[in-house]
């Protein structure tokens, strides 16, 4: 049996206080194992992004337990969560969210800079990643000079840079046509298998689902295995 990369146990998240309270996540339980690529689909406002933020240590849950690998992160402080994100989690955001004044290569090197790694090693790693994602010829270009697909691929390369245990992607293909989107997701899937890591992807695009090992449905803050329609 493969190890768990991410474990959520009865995770709840409530926003606001007093009369304004909204329970966005209503008890989520999920296990993601090494080598697994999980897709999350569901209607707008059902809590997918919130679920991803909580899993990725961006938001702390109101109750419940979250484990990354073997480490319980539910009780950690903001500073420790920062370190967890830096070392164990890779994010791919809806719009690639690259830093506008960094070249493709520097986008990756930034992560090793944040982790105080040696430059030589990081450069080798960055070049390797860029090569696998077909970006080597673009490595000295700025984001504004890239196509949408190239930007998303850069974002994926960046997410892998620090060897995270798990990749969290929020609609990574939203701004791409379906063909380009499919290549990007395919690359994500390949990397997950190759490295025995895990990934969760939120998507609206039904055509991507066959690239994933498992599909979970989010509805009104709860995960269900089959859509209710």
């Amino acid at each position: 049996m493969k190890e768990n990369k991410l474990t959520l146990q009865d995770v709840k998240k409530t926003f606001g206080d007093g009369d304004q309270q909204v329970e966005v996540l209503k008890g989520i339980t999920l296990e993601v194992k090494a080598g697994e690529f999980v897709a999350v689909v569901g209607p707008s406002g059902s809590g997918k992004s919130t679920f991803l933020s909580v899993s990725g240590a961006l938001l702390s849950p109101t109750s419940g337990r979250i484990m990354i690998g073997n480490q319980d992160i539910s009780t950690l402080h903001a500073k420790e969560l920062n370190q967890i994100r830096l070392k164990n989690i890779g994010f791919v955001f809806q719009s690639a969210n690259l830093i506008p004044y960094l070249t493709v290569r520097d986008q990756l090197l930034l992560l090793s800079e944040l982790e105080h790694q040696t430059h030589k090693e990081a450069e080798k790693k960055a070049d390797g990643l860029l090569e696998r994602l077909g970006l080597l010829h673009r490595k000295n270009h700025y984001p504004e000079q890239l196509s949408g697909g190239e930007r998303q691929r850069t974002a994926i390369a960046r997410a892998w840079m620090n060897d995270p245990e798990i990749i969290l992607a929020d609609e990574p293909t939203a701004s791409l046509d379906s063909e380009r989107g499919r290549t990007v997701v395919q690359m994500l899937a390949d990397e997950v298998k190759l490295r025995e890591k895990a990934a969760i992807m939120v998507t609206h695009d039904q055509r991507m689902l066959d690239l994933c090992n498992r599909v979970v449905y989010m509805e009104d803050g709860q995960l269900i295995s089959k859509p209710s329609v």
């Binding site: 500073k79 920062n82 994100r85 830096l86 994010f91 830093i99």
Partner: peptide, 16 residues
């Protein structure tokens, strides 16, 4: 603001 948000999400500390 958005950019700093991304950097923090990637694990950059406020101090940095």
């Amino acid at each position: 603001v958005n950019q700093f948000g991304v950097l923090k999400a990637m694990g950059a500390q406020s101090g940095y």
